[in-house]
């Protein structure tokens, strides 16, 4: 079998499996892991009107995985009438952050400037993070739409992290580490992260040492959180496809190994 043909079979098979998984109406019930339960319980315990900061620290290319994660966090916050300050420390996350925040706010009939605000992007992440520890309005003199920060109702009583209950970094890379090291370490702020699955092991040491409050990881994390929230979305829709794709990969690995050892036995490898 030539290489191109093998490639077609592998990718064609994956495409078929994922597509068929979507076309069937089977839905998996994901049971929340302790980590997801902890994240959910914390946000659920915050009194109405509490302010959280959500930072969109990701690229556009990771949106398919990031979007369900961001939506569960934003939906839960708006559902519990929490107020959200959105920021972005990654240029590509700016427009996406504003879109997701506005889209979710419309679902819950929230008012811009009163229930939520998007302050936009700031370069030099560390200095921006440290600067907000002194004054958020100094780092972001205007919001994303150009309104002076001190004229926005939600920001009237917000000076720095002291008035914020938690920082949630929605990240696809190591940027959330800055929030942990500087805001968690120096300002003793609770930090939660919503991460792509590829980054989970990077943050495990911070989680184990208690520097990171909790992690919502990958599409599976989003699905578990959606179930707790009672609002199945992109995470739940993708669970059957993900399980099928993983089984498919495992089967391919087994077949590959059988072929390899058979070839070696016959002296071909």
């Amino acid at each position: 079998m030539n290489r191109l043909k093998t490639r077609w079979i592998i990718f064609g098979g994956l495409f078929l499996i994922v597509t068929l998984s979507y076309l069937t109406n089977i839905r998996f019930k994901s049971v929340a892991s302790p980590e997801i339960q902890k994240s959910y319980d914390y946000l659920d315990s915050l009194p109405e009107g509490s302010v959280i900061m959500v930072s969109f620290d990701h690229e556009a290319s990771s949106l398919p995985e990031i979007q369900p994660l961001a939506l569960v966090v934003l939906r839960h916050a708006f559902k519990n009438n929490l107020k959200i300050i959105g920021v972005s420390l990654f240029a590509e996350g700016t427009a996406i952050g504003y879109r997701l925040l506005s889209q979710t706010a419309r679902e819950y009939d929230k008012t811009y400037g009163v229930d939520y605000v998007f302050l936009g992007f700031k370069p030099q992440q560390i200095s921006a993070i440290l600067g907000m520890g002194e004054s958020i309005a100094h780092v972001f003199p205007e919001d994303y739409l150009g309104t002076p920060t001190d004229e926005i109702p939600i920001m009237m009583n917000i000076v720095n992290y002291d008035q914020i209950e938690m920082v949630i970094s929605i990240a696809d890379g190591a940027l959330a580490v800055h929030w942990i090291e500087y805001v968690g370490g120096q300002y003793h702020q609770n930090i939660m992260t919503a991460l792509t699955a590829a980054m989970i092991t990077t943050y495990d040491p911070y989680l184990a040492s208690g520097q990171l409050y909790s992690v919502i990881g990958g599409l599976k994390g989003a699905a578990e959180y959606e179930n707790l929230l009672g609002q199945p979305g992109g995470g739940n829709r993708g669970m059957l496809a993900q399980t099928s794709a993983h089984v498919y990969v495992i089967v391919l690995i087994v077949i590959g190994n059988i072929l390899y050892f058979r070839g070696r036995k016959n002296g071909k490898a």
Partner: peptide, 16 residues
């Protein structure tokens, strides 16, 4: 986890 992440990206695009 990386395989899981890449699959999620692919699944997200198929969903779209």
């Amino acid at each position: 986890y990386t395989v899981m992440s890449r699959m999620s990206t692919f699944i997200g695009r198929i969903d779209f």
